[in-house]
Nucleic acid binder design. Sequence first.
RNA 1: GGCCCCGUAGCUCAGUUGGAUAGAGCAGUGGACUUCUAAUCCACAGGUCGCAGGUUCGAAUCCUGCCGGGGUCGCCA
Length: 585
Amino acid sequence: MNIFRDFAERLKSAVELIAEQSGIRDVDTARVVVEPPRDPSHGDLACNAAMVLAKPLGLKPRDLATRIAAVLAEDPDVDSVEVAGPGFINLRVRSGYWHKALKSLIGAGETFGRSTMGVGDAVNVEYVSANPTGPMHIGHCRGAVVGDVMANLMVAAGFDVTREYYINDAGSQVDVLARSAYLRYREALGEDIGAIPEGLYPGDYLRPVGEALAREHGDILLAMPEEEWMPVVRVTTVDMMMAMIREDLALLNIVHEIFFSERTLTAGDPSAVEAAIDQLTRDGLVYEGRLPPPKGQLPDDWEDREQLLFRSTEFGDDVDRPLRKSDGSPTYFASDIAYHYDKLRRGFRHLIDVWGADHGGYVKRMQAAIRAISGGAAHFEVKLVQIVRLLSGGEPVKMSKRSGDFITLRELVDRVGPDPIRFMMVFRKNDAQLDFDFEKVTEQSKDNPVFYVQYAHARTCSVFRQAAEELPGLDLSIGALERARLESLDDVGEMALIRRLLEYPRMIEAAAEAQEPHRVAYFLHELASEFHAHWNRGKELPQLRFINHADSHSTLARLALVHATKLVLSSGLAILGVSAPEEMR
RNA sequence: GGCCCCGUAGCUCAGUUGGAUAGAGCAGUGGACUUCUAAUCCACAGGUCGCAGGUUCGAAUCCUGCCGGGGUCGCCA
């Protein structure tokens, strides 16, 4: 149950009643919001209805608020109603309502917080899509986690989610990769290859590829010209790189359902890319024309020439975009159009792409393209993740990709483990830069939000261990907790915790709606804080402790609250893909 | 130069899609360990929300123009 939605419904019927009395029909209540007030002293729930609807109803905000308040005051679950400020309606809910809601939370168990908002709509989340030219490094890490948590979040919100990886295995870089692997092949056959020439991939990770090629083909590739060995070597190399990337992703518990090869778009006659260009041509969205040279610094090899352009300006882009390179082959943009065409054909109407910030200049044209090919019917959202700055003790860690000594994802996971990486990568808005400090992230203290939240979960477990030990006769089953006399939970700390827990479903929906996974992490941090705070109140006021030997009824009610806290913490951590440990010694 | 992102406490950042007196953590100061794990908690202090206009009952949030930082700009993917 979602208490905010529950009361929003009650408010709307109150408004409709008042509108009817004034002879007005069809009031638009879409902008009416019921939310927790920023200041808890204002009550349990705050509503803006009077301010939003004053005009259409021809009333002053405060007068309307007073009339709505009078209707709501009759509600048996409402304790008190106040009109405040410019026309806020502040509700205080009877404590029995909270206890009822808590009971249903416990009954819902792990399904608490799951929403049907998505009504099973098919969503495609494309993320990582790192080039298959080497192991994953830190630069890929953030997009990987953000995409994965996004997918989890959309599942929780009731969408039918497919996780997808686009393999860029068609460009010239893959040929360069294959040449580098071919060199390693010669090396594996005993040849002294000397230093890796400039322009090829120097990494040791290609050695096993060379060895595999040698095992499979012996020396027959040596006698072939490049056109002949290239396709063979390319396939083996890309397959092995992708296997390696899959292993890297598995270290972060990331598993994609679909790996989509760019190369398959260029195969066949006509290829999917050519078909897409043909379709755009038939729709009159393509022409031969000239682009103005870029302002600022002109590329050395700039030449003014006619080329095949897509009319992206008709769909909100700043300039029209080329579909063919000077040699006539399709641009990356052209294959990307074909790729997204394919996603739409597979039945997806919601597409979420997670890209690195360096692709920011690419967003508008892709949005334009999808508007064009879907006739405006598809929801397409690009989430750009900003750069991660890697620090160690506050000092930037130097990385040089050229020399190949960048820090791999594998090294990072070995050093700090998957949980801190996953948590920290979503403990920030995706469009803000992020500092990732080795020392802070491995630290096991409250400075580290990962441990802070995990510790709260471990504490909930420790309470139950303790209770089982101290009160061996007490039935601690879920059923017993559900039947507990929850009305005895009346301390301010307990009530604050209950209110926070019941915000969970609303937070999930809002985060999914906004496609902002970081909200889950922040919510958990706040919930953990609420729990730690209440725990500590039991030190000064022993009568507030969860376990009370003299009173098994209140103990059981409090354990029910602890259980509910554990449920929400582990549910939220599951969305983040972070483990919820039972103890942290 | 065009486009995109960012600018909130000394530092790192949230801010519930336009709500009330702008919030956390770190750093600083002062407190709480014969305890259900002090890996925690409490209190104090800290702000012209980059600047200037505009929109309205109401702006950190939306619009315009500046300033500063980052990214990006046909034949890389």
